[in-house]
Amino acid sequence: MEQAVTILKQISGFLWGWPALILIAGTGIYLTLILRFLPIRQLGFGFKQMFGPQTGVGTIGAGAALATSLSATIGTGNIVGVATAIHSGGPGALVWMWLIALVGMATKYAEAVLAVQYREKDAAGQYVGGPMYYIQNGLGRNWRWMAIAFAIFGMLAGFGIGNSVQANSVAHGLQDSFGLPAWITGVTLAVLVGLVVLGGMKRIATVATFIVPFMALTYLLAGLVVLVDHAEALPAALALCFESAFTGTAAAGGFAGALVKEAIRFGIARGIFSNEAGLGSAPIAHASANTDHPARQGSIAMLGTFIDTIIVCSIT
């Protein structure tokens, strides 16, 4: 077991190392510049589209697609991810999470636009899409191998960062707080998730639309209560975050030695893990959205990154 853990840590260190982070962050910066900061300029337009009337064709509602996407991102990454980022990279990691989220909005926008542009209808007449579709249909048949590779690795990631991490955190939390055996939590989650997933995209969207707003608002309200109770400490805490982000100044009590590069590394890594911008999972949901133009759904999709990191992670 120890050997397996060591191997997994080595793989994780490579996948979440500097080369991958630079590629993902660099792509976000490139898209932000090419789009002339469109996601930031059109943030209000995105919220208007989310709450506005639904037009066009699709399998699920545009807002339901966003809820489905958020159901995968609002969770462990917003709570444990933020805590580990601050513990490993110092308070400045939070600032770098904000910065990667701002450029990540452009990545999420582009992903959704491509997903809708190159989506297809399956045998049941439902719209399906995602990176595997727009790689093949957009780049051509010569890139089919990459589409297949994404589908395979995406499926494996679903078992890893998509399920195992979340279930493990829930099981440990319930076991530590209430003494509930981990296997009971695991079986219960497996059954509940199975009942939803086996119902297809429509059932996933329906459940997500019901649960996600309640889950997010409950967490935000609980967090705000804590923040209001400690309002006098907020100015100093924010100042410490910005100071640590660019000077490497460490916080007292456990953050000694946190360098700027570590704040950048862990901030970017946890930010990407939290909002999944560039990982390719969100466009699979947005490809099924009821919309009349790819850019319209893109403006809704980018809100996922804003809500997930700028709002929820900040509360944490």
Rank of each mutant, 00 (worst) to 15 (best):
I152K: 06
G154Y: 10
G154C: 05
M155R: 11
M155F: 14
L156Y: 02
G158C: 01
F159S: 14
F159H: 13
F159Q: 12
F159D: 10
G160R: 15
G160H: 15
I161V: 14
I161T: 04
I161S: 10
S164N: 14
S164V: 13
V165Q: 04
V165Y: 10
Q166S: 13
Q166K: 14
A167T: 11
A167E: 08
V170Y: 05
V170Q: 13
V170S: 10
A171F: 06
G173D: 04
G173H: 01
G173F: 09
G173M: 01
Q175K: 15
D176C: 10
D176Y: 14
S177H: 12
S177Y: 13
S177P: 14
S177Q: 11
F178Q: 05
G179M: 03
G179Q: 03
L180A: 06
P181M: 10
P181E: 07
P181R: 09
P181N: 09
A182N: 15
A182W: 10
W183K: 10
W183R: 12
W183L: 10
W183D: 14
W183I: 13
I184A: 13
G186W: 11
G186D: 05
V187Q: 10
T188W: 03
T188Q: 08
A190T: 08
A190K: 02
A190N: 08
V191Y: 02
V191N: 00
V191W: 00
V191F: 06
V193A: 03
V193D: 00
G194Q: 06
G194H: 01
L195V: 05
L195T: 12
L195N: 00
V196W: 02
V196R: 01
V196F: 00
V196G: 01
V196D: 08
V197C: 11
V197Y: 07
V197E: 03
L198H: 15
G199K: 11
G200I: 02
G200F: 07
M201A: 10
M201E: 08
K202A: 09
K202F: 06
K202N: 04
R203M: 12
T206F: 08
T209Y: 02
F210L: 09
I211F: 09
I211K: 04
V212E: 07
V212Q: 00
V212A: 00
P213T: 05
P213H: 07
F214L: 14
A216Q: 02
A216V: 05
A216P: 01
L217N: 07
T218D: 04
Y219F: 01
Y219G: 08
Y219D: 04
L220E: 07
L220V: 11
L220N: 08
L221R: 07
A222K: 04
L224D: 00
L224M: 03
